[in-house]
Amino acid sequence: MDHVKEERAGSAGQAAAASRRRLRKFEAIAPGRALLTLVMAGFALLMVVPFIWMVGTSFKSPAEVFVYPVKWIPSSLNWEHHLRVWTGPDGFATYYANSLKISLISTAGAVFLSSLAAYGFARIRFKGREPLFLLYLSMMMVPPQVLFVPKFIMFDAIGIYNTHLALILPGMFTIFGVFMMRQFFLGVPGEITEAAFIDGAGHFRIFFRLMLPLAKPALATLAIIDFSWHWNDYENALVFLLDRNLFTVPLGLQNFILENTVDYNGMMAAATAGIVPMLLVFLIGQRYIIQGVAGSAVKG
């Protein structure tokens, strides 16, 4: 079946390539293509309109917020909302510091510990490997809701409830990361490590000197996914943090909005503070981020 398909596609492909070459000469602006571009750009605008409205509103005066037709550009720039949101003991400067600390440490730990374990699962034959891996597999199905209550009780008992450790310690362990890295290590051809073994290198040396450098792209992908997961994690912070000075960005944002329910400019200034820095990071690194996300799904 595949064979027939290929054959048929092959000859058709040649004809098509020829016609494409002929067409290219006339390909200044194809009207159909331009029309579709316009339509898709229109929908794209719909996707980003909430962001535009958010930033605009954060600079408006209170009276302008709900004026219709919508004032996309405020008549004067009111910076005071932003100033208020960022400064002070429970300002976004504190939330950013907290989020950064938690996300960076968790991600670094998770990337290292899961590649270590992944190497073990992929390249070392040891007793109980298959059942252990099956146990990992089954843990992927357990939803966080099952774990919240017992973790809450445990953390309270050992005194890390309402500290950053309650997010960092569990954050350093990701089953998904083990899967992803294991998949990568399984794909590394055996000949590459064989030579090193013959030279007398042990597993640890091979892991650190050979495998980790080889795995750089996979490590970067995992790091990006894991970091963004920690950065946007609201649910764990909601369950395990109580004190305002410990809040992460999503939790701080929620707190601000609950306390300023009628201050729409302030709310949008806070949302801007929560979103825009990450958007900038995205615009700078979008190629890698998009690749990382696409790569993870194929493997995951």
């Binding site: 996707m47 909430p50 962001f51 409205w53 958010m54 963004s228 950065w231 946007n232 609201y234 960005v249 999503p250 944002l253 929620q254 909005i257 709310m267 949008m268 806070a270 949302a271 929560g274 979103i275 990450m278 958007l279 995205f282 981020i289 996300v293």
Partner: peptide
Amino acid sequence: PYITSGVAVAFV
């Protein structure tokens, strides 16, 4: 939208 924090955009 996907890379922003879901909670933040929900408020918008």
